[in-house]
Structures are given as structure tokens and as C-alpha cells.
Design a protein around this nucleic acid. Sequence first.
DNA 1: TTTGTTGCAAATCATTTGCACGTAG
DNA 2: CTACGTGCAAATGATTTGCAACAAA
Lengths: 136, 136
Amino acid sequence: MSDLLERLRARGWRMTSQRRVVAEVLAGDHVHLTADEVHARAVAHLPEIARATVYNTLGELVALGEVVELSTDGRAKRYDPNAHHPHQHLVCSNCGIIRDVHPTGDPLGALPPAERFGFTVATADVTYRGLCPSCA
Amino acid sequence: MSDLLERLRARGWRMTSQRRVVAEVLAGDHVHLTADEVHARAVAHLPEIARATVYNTLGELVALGEVVELSTDGRAKRYDPNAHHPHQHLVCSNCGIIRDVHPTGDPLGALPPAERFGFTVATADVTYRGLCPSCA
DNA sequence: TTTGTTGCAAATCATTTGCACGTAG
DNA sequence: CTACGTGCAAATGATTTGCAACAAA
């Protein structure tokens, strides 16, 4: 369960102070920050980091497959560093908080061949929605 | 299987020419247009309809629960008029085409209580991804 | 009439890009 | 040294909003 930063170094990713800070901000489970939130936290450790650099860096991490991009809510995309551990998401319809969840069984199995329209189906992203304990 | 327009009239939705045109554009299965595409098609029937009106109207249809908003692709949201018929989506990772699909079983059942973090889970949205026949 | 809807343009928000400067390898 | 990353500001794309004119019930 090596962390994001280690994995990036191992891949020979060119390291800079801003890239390191972005990778440090994105650490742990149940972390689903927007680009702006990542920027805000990064600034606390590296005041001169630019918003555009955060966007570029996040885009690169997504391209590398080290971070997953979520469109779960209406506005800004969120970034999930837990890419090495397959999981789905549970979102509160009221406050928007997101938890990582692990459903049983293979979601792909629920889609019969007749319902595949000739597609080669590769993945299934599931978003569960409901009310969290605080909002219920 | 009454159509969208009928259901809206039945609900006593205040009808205007632009609302009617928007509702007419959103008809049928496997329809997943962006707000801009809806506007483009609406203009063909009612040249003076404003883009803002299309956005407002779509937002209202979503609030009424008569249309579902999809964030499946990176950029613009798409609108699915098939709200009365529960279904999931199959998206081509290459060209972005979307098909409505009906998986077997109840997706909610796959989430065990221990994985619900105290949430009251209401729905499960599934997005299958893969390559369509043309892109494979 | 009366209340809710529309059109227009300007405002906002999220994200991207162009370019000169800076720095990791 | 030299390719690649960064900061800044301006550009873009999607969507929302303010407000006066307008039309459905």
C-alpha cells in the first residue's frame, strides 16, 4: 500500500516542489477534493503555487492513472487518489459528502450480452446516493 | 408510455411555445443531448428561442423529475428524458455515444450494510464503459 | 389582470492556454 | 546545458442571473 508520492517517484515522474505538494495533499482514503480545494491546501504549504499548475498536475495524474476523476456532483470535478484500490462511491444527496465503498460481486456480471449492444464493456462505475447520518 | 409533453400537461405545467419545443426535442429512447444540442434543435422549430430559456427549462424539468441529468462525459451535462423508466447507461470510451441499458438484479443489493456508513441509501447509478462496435 | 416566462446581455465558475522565466536531471 | 515545468494573465466553454418586455391562465 505504497503512497501516491512513492509510486510517482518509482515511475520516474519528474519531481518539483509543486508536484510534491499536490501529491501530498492527495493522500488517504475517502479523499475527494475539487481542483480548487487541492489548490487551497497546496497554497498552505507552498504559497506561490499557481492554480493552473494544480490543474495541469491533476490532469497529468489522471492521465497516468494514479488519480481518478469524479463527476459525481453538478459543478467541479473531484479527484480521488485511491486509484490502485478498485472501489465505488456513496454520495450524500444533501451535503455532498463522499465515501469509498466496496460492493460485493462483479458489477459487470449484471449486464447481460443482449443488453450490451455489441459493446466491449470494460468497467462499471457505480454511484450510490442517499442521506448520510448527519443529514438524515 | 405517455410521452414527456403529455405528462407535463397532465401535471399542469404552464405551457409556452418554447417549453413545448424543448419537450418535443427531448423524446424517445437513447436520447442524451447536451443543453446546447437541445438549443440547436429547438431553434430549428422556433428560431427566436434563447439559450438561457433552454437552460432554465431543462433545469426545471430536472427539478420536476421528468428528465435526468447525466454528468457522464467530461464537459457539458446531458439530458435524458427517459426518467419514468429506470435504466443505466453504457458509454463508449472513444466516441462518447450513450445507450440505455437494463442490468439484471437490484444494484442496491450489492452494497452490504457494513459498507453503508450509516447512510440511508436510495439509488444506485451505474455507468458501464467500453468500446462501441464502430470504435472497437 | 396577474403571475410566471422569455430574451438579451452581462456575470460567474471551472478549466485551459500562450508565453516568458525558472529549474530538475 | 536543455528539456520540461511553472506562474501569470488572458481566453474559453458552460451555465446562471438581472431585468424589462411579454403572454398564458
